[in-house]
């Protein structure tokens, strides 16, 4: 992997524009839309959490999703991963309508996610947590496992190979056997990321991966997200309040407010969009980006 941390912002901007052109062309032919959010709406009692949200995420793209607190970002994630069923609209992934698919089948279809407030298996070790992410690859059942048949061992070896790769990549090898609850917050977030990535998702939903990280850690995370995208060839839908991070690594950004899409486009375009500036209380977004 070439190190990108030393690139100047100017270079990075140029790279993004190129990629954007590429994806713009793809969208024109409707070739590479991996995820289509079509007019999605959902309400909780009187609260309209999402209303008529539409956008697409293309194959290989990092799509940023921003918006003030309570604008519906996590709700949209929960709709995509089947935890909520939207009352209006469709979510189409790879040509399949997700709204009719059982939650536990989404991982095998290629949708992985992390959670805003960690959702780790607290009593289990780091390795075990990550291995659960590979559960859907397995075909062996209770009897085969109890008897420890050769195919169980083959399956376990495959999972272990993927595990070792991710432990190295995410610098978790030293704590692989630790109970996950003993780790500091930032490391727990990496465990969650590894758990999502080991499942080989085509689309990774990341809900505030930079939450609780300090400045240098955010820089490492930015590199990491891009590395993961390139290495595992997935699309990423990234919810994040850390504007610097979003604007730096997103190919495209979608902005929500009160459950509605208020802007969409290149990072520059979105961060200069008047609606976005207004939503972030007149220029707070600017301040964050600068």
């Amino acid at each position: 992997m070439p190190a990108r941390a030393d690139q100047t912002p100017k270079h990075r901007g140029a790279g993004c524009r190129q990629r954007l052109l590429f994806f713009a062309a793809g969208r024109a032919f409707r070739m590479s839309a991996l995820l289509e959010i079509r007019n999605v709406g959902i309400r909780f009692g009187g609260i309209v959490a999402l209303s008529g949200v539409s956008f697409e995420v293309c194959a290989g793209e990092i799509c940023g999703l921003i918006g003030p607190n309570g604008s519906g970002k996590t709700t949209l994630f929960n709709c995509i991963s089947g935890i909520y069923r939207p009352s209006k609209g469709d979510i189409v992934f790879n040509g399949q309508n997700l709204c009719t698919i059982a939650r536990h089948r989404l991982a095998a279809l290629g949708i992985g996610r992390t959670f805003q407030n960690l959702a780790l298996f607290r009593t289990m070790s780091v390795s075990e947590n990550i291995l659960v992410g590979a559960h859907h690859f397995g075909r062996t059942g209770f009897i085969a496992n109890a008897l420890c048949l050769p195919r169980v061992r083959r399956e376990e070896d495959d999972a272990q190979r993927r595990l070792v790769e991710l432990l190295e990549l995410l610098e978790l090898a030293a704590v692989a056997a630790e109970p996950v609850a003993n780790l500091p917050f930032a490391m727990q977030k990496r465990v969650e990321l590894a758990r999502a990535v080991i499942g080989g998702p085509k689309l990774l939903l990341m809900d505030e991966p930079a939450g609780g990280l300090n400045h240098s850690e955010v820089d490492v995370l930015a590199e990491l997200i891009r590395t993961l995208r390139d290495r595992f060839q997935m699309s990423i839908l990234l919810v994040e309040h850390h504007m610097n991070l979003v604007m730096r690594i997103s190919d495209r950004v979608v902005a929500l407010e009160f459950g509605m899409k208020i802007a969409e486009g290149s990072p520059q375009a979105v961060q200069n969009h008047p609606e976005v500036i207004r939503a972030y209380l007149g220029g707070r977004a600017h301040a964050a980006v600068a």
Partner: peptide
Amino acid sequence: NLLAGRIGRAMRAVRDHPIAAEAMG
């Protein structure tokens, strides 16, 4: 054997966090 492998991990995952376990398949 059962508890140490894939099935046992899934059992404990369901106990610790059913929503996350379901999202993992």
